[in-house]
Design a protein around this nucleic acid. Sequence first.
DNA 1: TATCAAGTTGACGTATAGGTAAACGTGCGC
DNA 2: GCGCACGTTTACCTATACGTCAACTTGATA
Lengths: 141, 141
Amino acid sequence: MDASNHPELYSVTELAADLGVTARTLRFYEDKGLIEPRRIGNTRVYTHRDRGRLALILRGKRLGFSLREIRDWLELYEAGPGQRRQLEALLAKAAERIATLEQQRQDIDATIAELKDIMGATKRWLADPNCKPQHTRKARQ
Amino acid sequence: MDASNHPELYSVTELAADLGVTARTLRFYEDKGLIEPRRIGNTRVYTHRDRGRLALILRGKRLGFSLREIRDWLELYEAGPGQRRQLEALLAKAAERIATLEQQRQDIDATIAELKDIMGATKRWLADPNCKPQHTRKARQ
DNA sequence: TATCAAGTTGACGTATAGGTAAACGTGCGC
DNA sequence: GCGCACGTTTACCTATACGTCAACTTGATA
């Protein structure tokens, strides 16, 4: 289990570049308790596992979770006694997020509809300034 | 054109309550140059027109424009020489916003798909811990 | 007149995810 | 010994849209 013949060790800058973020970001995540790389003296050294963990973190971000949510989940995942609960918690979180996103999509659709309505009225107005500004759609209050 | 027989005058708190925001919000909008109510002494007095303007502002917000964008547009709208250009500018802005929103909706859909994929894999895993964690969908990079 | 409600300004706080700068340490090659 | 490329920490800055608090005036009321 010695890693010396297959190092997979990264410095901050290396791993950051590798993951497409900045070194600042990795240090920031460490501040926030998301990762804890080993150190040689004062210098951070990231292992292959750290890289995997970071990849998970970035994925969580892409899926719209906050750093805090991600951290909580990772903690739960690491320290949890059984797998089951964690997976179920993950399921719940995912479902929750999906619900939020579906709500957001509805809002977006409504907004697009309202904007299109405004555009239509504006165009009619431009074509014939006599016709009164008249939207077909009621704005939500 | 005297308003004395039909005052329609509001204090901050009144108008705020009327519009469903706080007084702080109205003062904040004034700071940002979105409205400039008259004053009696030091006290703000909002007219009917102010109310209309505020309603426009809130609508803009609901449609996802920033206060700065709203302010710029209102300025353009008030000080502009002809109507045409303003309306055309409005059309352009609306189209732009729609494009942004449609992009957002695509992102949301993709994210939902990925979340559902994860949920599916997790459920299979829960049902049969032997089957390897296997997502059907590739994550976007 | 004492007090209370409502108005005013100014300043600082909140949340998020880092960016940016300052000041400093450290190994390496020449 | 010098400079360079890295690394480190601390601390303040960014944007957005207000919330919250403090301190102060002013007009109306009991």
